[in-house]
Design a protein around this nucleic acid. Sequence first.
RNA 1: GGCCCUUUAGGCUAGUGGUUAGACCGGCUCGUUUACACCGAGCAUGCACCAGUUCGAUUCUGGUAAGGGCCACCA
Length: 776
Amino acid sequence: MPEQTTPEMEAKWRTFWEKEKVYAFNPKGKKIFSVDTPPPTVSGAMHMGHAFSYAQQDFIVRYHRMKGENVLYPFGTDDNGLPTERLVEKLKNVKSKDMSRADFITLCLATLKEITPAFVQDWKNLGISADYALTYSTIDDTTRKISQQAFLDLYTDKKVYHKAFPTLWCPECQTAIAQAELEDSEKDTFFSTLLFIAGKEKLPIATTRPELLPACVAVFVNPADTRYTHLIGKEATTPLGKKVPIKADESAQIDKGTGVLMICSYGDKYDADAIARHKLTPVIIRNKDGTLNVAPYQGMKPKEARSRILKELKEKGLVTDQKQIKHVVNVHDKCRTFVEFLPTDQWFIQIIENKKKLITQGKKVTWYPTQMFKRYENWVNGLEWDWSISRDRHFGIPLPVWFCETCKETVVATPAELPVDPLQTKKTCQTCKKPCTPETKVLDTWATSSLSPQIVSQLVKGKAVVPFSLRPQAHDIIRTWAFYTIVRALYHENTLPWNDIIISGNVSMGGEKMSKSKGNGVDPQPIMAQYGADALRYWAATSKLGEDLDYQEKDIVTAQKFITKLKNAAQFIFSNLTIPSKQPGLEETDRLFLIQLNKTIQEATDAFESYEYSRAKAVTDHFFWKVFADNYIELVKTRVYSGSPEGKTSAAWTLSTAFLTLTKLFAPFTPYITEEIYQTYFKKQEKTSSIHTSAWPIPIKLKATKNDEVTWTTLLDIITLVRTEKSKAQKSMKVPVSLILPAPEQKLLASVLDDLKAVTTTQTITTGKRTVTILA
RNA sequence: GGCCCUUUAGGCUAGUGGUUAGACCGGCUCGUUUACACCGAGCAUGCACCAGUUCGAUUCUGGUAAGGGCCACCA
């Protein structure tokens, strides 16, 4: 085997795979195994979590390829949304809002062109066996066209609508966001009791958001709350002196706070619902950047306004109680900014009315692990709003829509125009023949990535259609990517997007999820450079689907040792033996060993069939180390060095066959070293150019007898016993011994006795109770 | 507050309704140089707790505790 560093060796085979198109999809082939590969977000480099989950999906894909299926494993990059926008702003030191949309998009596309190849290279280095010729970007022309067309289809079907509505608003990103983009954040805040006045009575109201007082439009009490029933229908004066109605509402909880609550436009969805329910007139006191627009708090950020109002009210003695509490607030997942509620014009896809159907659809998909479906179900059940798909940002796929300046009608693009940027395209109203104003918003990035199966279908010119075979993804995006993809497949194709979904776990470090924000991240790149991608992959195969794995560098070292062991085994086999081309007559030891190999093939195959790659690896590992290396090789060593020609030939064939089989069983996990071994030792006898397109092993046809199992275990038991005795006596494994074995055991082992004597350095065997006597 | 998951050796993890629960790292005792010191042999140490089902439970059921996740609440 040529001496190379691991990165050199891996680079060599990467080039080879690319040249030989080992991972190419065959558009004419049958038995398609289609994978809806997650397109990683272009916002930096591959992190350990990526490496972990992509490696796991790759094990499965490689298994299916070796089984002879026509694998469609595309690659995509998600680069049309806020994360990319932020990345470009950072890299190029610009602010998108200071540029025209066209200029900013041009800059983004140019920047992506610079950075994407290096970004994707990490995946290639990891040995992800995608067909990189089938690569899409969620911002490229084809995708823009597909996404806009899909939007138009939903518009025609009246599944998408446009509405002015109080929605979740990120004041930092200055865009509407979806429920799925909310994250929790625990913050310290003051829970203040403010004094409202009703006639001559004091009416204390507890709140965490006094800055909303100017927007207070009503006060609610529970109709069953006898403390306040007499006040219902009267007016209350807010601490700022404004008069608001006191209304009865069942949703006001008697035991919460003071039992009285203020309704402000808008604090949260509760306020929005309450205002709609009681037909109150909202007072909008917020600008889109979150600042207030009412005197004397004009231009103040909420936090500033809050302390200012509290200070003023305290001076007037209108704050009767105040305590510091921790409470959980919603923040935007992209920027961790406190999310506000603002009435704006937005586009929505109907999902609420189809919740039931969407749960049914989700149930039809086979989830691995199964309980992940619960996560999906819970999320859909808990949905309260339709999917807000418009974003007030620059970089993204534009909504293909204009509004007539005269009749205010919505005008949509024609299919022939797509992809289109309304800001760049003039439109006239069909009815009024008057000019239209372009919609300036862009689509939520999920509105495009949820079409990934359809996008991939286009890449292969419709040769693969939904449902795809498999969707691999992480569990944190069940509520977004998985859910939205199911929505789109239902709405556009009236089917499932895929048959199976596999969910990978997280990488943790000391029990905590590895993440940049926690500062406990480890980058995969230097690990791959030092130990090799194979080692990183081998490590990722130790935990099963959906399970988290705690990262420890020493486990990567273990993986590296495996690779060395594999190389050394090859060294032994091929430097000492001539391998016969056909199966010779087999010695009993060899036949018994091969029966064990057959069991392993079966177990590994069964495991892979149910996506249990970690079990496949574990059984193969066990067989390789414990059966093949520790016992079988030792058993036949003497025969290999000084046996009869027949004995040698049998051992040679057995060793080579078992080793090729093992190499193939390991190929999905460690593609580089197994390719190296395949090319070096097996290429001549095997038909396919790469191990990764070679046939997955099937059990070898062998004669079997009913005693095979017990003979094999007895043989190993005796070897272990002898080794134990030698160890206990602190003797070398080479010291001669004499054995006493019961007559039935001797009979059972008759055909393997020579090998047994050789491996245990036994000189004599006599009959009696099983005993080992050391002779030196 | 609701739902879900986890709890196995010092660390990280497999696994099982039934004689000695399996790897790896670490520890200990040794050995070995015609595959492998990135080695080999051997030893020690473990099923969170409490009930129940069962002839038998680490495994199934229920509860407790601890940890994690998702969601909700944010008067």
